[in-house]
Design a protein around this nucleic acid. Structure first.
Lengths: 219, 219
DNA sequence: AATCGATTCAAACATTCGTTTGACTTGCCG
DNA sequence: CGGCAAGTCAAACGAATGTTTGAATCGATT
């Protein structure tokens, strides 16, 4: 009657999580429907409620898995681990863009689900921002701040940190639009790295140019 | 039986369009429901189908109004109209960010609806990209290309044009996330302009630094 | 073999939501 | 006045969808 021990590896549980991850990331929580998920998982309609309690509880579980996989996949590059802040930025952006753009073989799908949450947030968004996004942004802010130097205004550092994030996530968030414009976002690790390096160069020159220590070059 | 002449100004038609614009931009096409829209417009449930034929036809009408208002509000800054490409970029970004971020008093809402379409596209997206977004991007590409100079690779120009777009639209597309991180996007024209100028400075230095004509400053 | 808990399944239930219907009101024209 | 077209309305219809139910199946334990 009550749901089974969640640590148990019921086979259909896994198939449901995988199928749900794909469906939720494709169309979002609301538009995804339980019957399709169950069909994709080759499970009965009642399976979702039996194993998870409700569609919403399933969604929370998928998020939990996705964000766990997300951070476990590869460690985040830090400022401290690099001699040169510029190199840290490039490394960080490569890592971040892979995180956002690559769809894990089975079901990482955190990037797509986040894009869905951005349009129609559920309770899961606040949780994820607090536990997943905030630490990532914090480290990037350190890198940006190091590149800008001491004299930079706090507000400016924040805006530029957000600007770098924008460069990294936009290919994903706007992929439907960019594809229709003729610029489908890269999907392989190699292509993503190449794009990340181009954008990192761009960001780097932008940041150095804005650094209060940098020489102003007005004629 | 058949819908009335669409040019006629039936009063409830307007109220429906306004209410629908708010609802669609808030939650997207699918999640918006006809009963709520009619209640907000103080109209009967049957009014949508009487005046527009269907929920989807109403949506198309709202898009048409929104994109018309969008371009009519203010002319797009062009490269040709500026002596200095750098100034053109700043002007363009100010204009573009106001376009995306400002919610028109009554119901412009094109920016929000576009963000919704990005997550769960309908047929309206392709139409809008072709007629609304492509011309805007084309002009921005001219400006970016002028700043980069002759020698720039075509692929690089495209990526950087998209990067500038990312800087402008991300505060809107990611507003739910940024707000939870403590950085709610600006909403007044003055604040938007300020942010646009900061981002334009950033983009400008980034572009100039990447220009093949610019001196490389490696030690 | 008998039993018991866990799991699966088809069917049904309850609600939401887009749409349709048919009656009623209103304003206009002969 | 009488009739007609346009618009409004409450009610109901029908499909989609999350959830529940109760029986059937399976596997391990005794």
């Amino acid at each position: 009657m009550s749901p089974p021990d969640p640590t148990r590896d019921a086979d259909t549980r896994h198939r449901l999580l995988a199928a749900a991850g794909e469906e939720f990331s494709r169309v979002g929580f609301r538009a995804a429907n339980v019957r399709d998920i169950c069909a994709a998982a080759e499970a009965n309609v009642a399976a979702v409620n039996y194993h998870f309690g409700s569609k919403e509880a399933l969604y929370r579980q998928v998020w939990e898995h996705a964000s766990r996989d997300m951070v476990a996949a590869e460690p985040m590059p830090t400022l401290a681990a690099h001699a040169d802040p510029a190199e840290a930025l490039t490394d960080f952006m490569r890592w971040f863009m892979r995180l956002v753009l690559i769809e894990g073989t089975g079901h990482t799908c955190a990037g797509s689900m986040l894009a869905q949450e951005a349009a129609e947030p559920t309770g899961a968004l606040s949780v994820f921002v607090e536990h997943g996004a905030a630490p990532i942004r914090k480290e990037l802010r350190r890198i940006v701040s190091a590149i800008l130097g001491r004299g930079a205004n706090r507000r400016v550092v924040d805006d530029l940190t957000n600007a770098v994030i924008a460069l990294c996530v936009n290919p994903k968030h706007s992929s439907e639009i960019l594809t229709r414009l003729g610029f489908p976002p890269p999907t392989t690790a190699a292509a993503i790295n190449r794009m990340a390096e181009r954008l990192a160069d761009f960001a780097l020159h932008g940041l150095i140019g804005l650094s209060p220590d940098a020489p102003t070059e007005e004629p």
